[in-house]
Nucleic acid binder design. Structure first.
Lengths: 346, 346
DNA sequence: TTGTACGCGTTATCAA
DNA sequence: TTGATAACGCGTACAA
């Protein structure tokens, strides 16, 4: 007497299996598998018969099983510092678009700017056997690095150009961008250029922006005044506060470079509230080209960063590695260009 | 002679398996499995021995295998109309936060406001055997609905309160919100209230906002003028254009309710450019309480919607269904409150 | 408390 | 071009 397989618990409804399709079509599961995944390797008649049964019973392949068996997955893990940050969304959109077109799925999580949380997320993604990782941060715990290395999954870092890349990098250089904007201000004749950016703890992007600013000051022959450097949090209110603080400590300040989020807009609003002319009393420059900057009056000088392209390119490189085994891409660093957009505020 | 198992291809490095841990610890794989998943069911000594080996060889469990075997997955699928829309990010953050704490992972994709694309994404998520779905849209193809029903996975819709919920709903009511704001404007004495919103094709949120606006006009005894209703795209420029259009066709307009994105800010900027006083010449109201609205001058009257709460609550309900089998939640509709925030613009 | 046997749904391999 | 068989790595069920 054949063993009766007792039904097993579980949260899924008992969906149709490949075996059910095979039985109904009078073929083996391998033929079903081929009809679905390598249609050309199956005769027209077979393919038709199989596909009609698939449709008829509403069969949905089980990706978990297929990934386990083939040792290939179609998921990619993405870790951003914070999901509610409009800065990243363009990059996510670029990634998402390319990845979807190739039939992959994106698993997204946020690290909250915490390398330890990032490590946990990387671990979680690896247990899910993602076939690639995209990391916005370029600062990682040694354990995270070790786990990634051991796993062998390809990685793209794309928030900055790190000194020691983990693997592939697609980004612009925060150092170069901040340097370029500071030089722009210097060339316009501003002598007391303040620099505001987001807290730089575990944020190498902020750190590099500060270094770029400082390098430009040296190049411009301007003296470095620590009172002109301010770290703050995100948001319009923070931008307003920056103005108040810097004016108070250094009244002769004549330019303010807000290297993060919408600080520049907050700063501009505060200046307007105080009745200060921008850029006559004080010039203002920003970092990312968010739509808003173009529409305020005066419009704000800023940097155009290739956010969407970074996402697209990251995805393409990752997929090349995953699907075509493009090993020559291992370790490549793509430094995408940015642009200074001069407007009315500086 | 025992069969030599030939190595199989695949993209993953040959990571350690549970069997390797078991061998090295001198126990069975079941003990390893229990030590990791149900530590209390294993003696202290065993647990210690197993965990030390796990650490030693850097073993990472294979979630694909465990999900397949247990018929339970730890992924949840989320479909938003567009990733680069700041409106959703708060909801995503709420979802993400709860989901992560429970050890689940979020798969995110964007439908581009297209029900057919949504259907494809739902199908893809089901093949990945997600254990729950979160859908922002409440408009779905019949096939999508059928597939979801058949799969048996719990679903939360959270962009609107639909007439015929698929399963659970956590949202505010777009109808009620638009109604409330229009009533607010009416009570302030405005007689010619224009209504601008985003294109309503495949966007039931926009459609319901319009209906809410119209219902309020009826209640207020104001006549409906089709020239006062404008559909447009997202962005500040669109908001500016709305002002130009409505003023041209209905010069006596005295209030403008911008029910979407940052239209209200674009409209405000345009009014300022034209030297029109807000709210004296024309009042302006917005829909979502984005930070910006509080910081412009005049500050903009708007609705505070429970975006983050929606995400949190959705996640909690979904997880209750998945982990605790809380079947009593099936079909529940949670209508979260919103608030009219009166500021200077209306 | 621990272990044995088997199955989860699919694909790789090799034979027909 | 198709099929039979044995994995893939783990958890369930049950026995010890």
């Amino acid at each position: 007497m054949p063993k009766q397989s007792s039904p097993r618990k579980g949260q899924f409804g008992s969906s149709a299996r490949m075996r059910d399709v095979a039985k109904r079509a009078g073929v083996s599961t391998m033929t079903v598998s081929r009809a679905l995944n390598e249609p050309s390797k199956v005769s027209d008649e077979m393919r038709e018969r199989v596909l009609s049964v698939v449709k008829e019973i509403g069969y949905l392949p089980n990706h978990l099983a297929s990934s386990l068996s083939s040792n290939r997955s179609t998921t990619i893990g993405l870790i951003v510092p914070s999901i509610d940050n409009s800065i990243y969304t363009q990059t996510v959109k670029g990634l998402s678009s390319v990845i979807r077109q190739s039939g992959f799925q994106l698993m997204i999580a946020e690290s909250g700017y915490d390398p330890n949380e990032e490590e946990e997320l990387i671990t979680a993604f690896l247990t899910h056997r993602v076939s690639g990782l995209v990391l916005h941060s370029t600062e990682h715990t040694p354990q995270a690095i070790a786990k990634i290395r051991k796993s062998g999954v390809p990685v793209v870092e794309n928030g900055n150009i790190p000194e020691k890349p983990l693997d592939m990098v697609v980004s612009y250089s925060n150092f170069d961008a901040a340097y370029a904007m500071t030089m722009h201000l210097g060339r316009l004749g501003y002598k007391h250029i303040a620099f505001a950016s987001l807290y730089s703890v575990h944020n190498d992007r902020s750190q590099d922006r500060l270094k770029g600013y400082q390098a430009a000051l040296v190049q411009l022959g301007l003296k470095q005044d620590p009172r002109l450097v301010i770290e703050t949090s995100r948001g319009l209110a923070a931008g307003a506060e920056v103005v108040a603080r810097v004016i108070h400590s250094v009244p002769e300040v004549d330019a303010l470079f807000c290297a993060g989020d919408v600080l520049a807009v907050g700063a501009l609003f505060e200046c307007q509230k105080r009745g200060w002319s921008v850029p006559d009393r004080i010039a203002i420059a920003s970092f990312d080209d968010v739509d808003l900057l173009r529409h305020v009056a005066p419009s704000v000088t800023t940097l155009r960063l290739p956010r969407y392209d970074i996402g697209e390119r990251s995805a393409r490189m990752l997929l090349s590695r995953i699907m075509d085994g493009a090993e020559h891409l291992r370790g490549s660093v793509v430094d995408l260009k940015f642009e200074v957009i001069q407007r009315e505020s500086a």
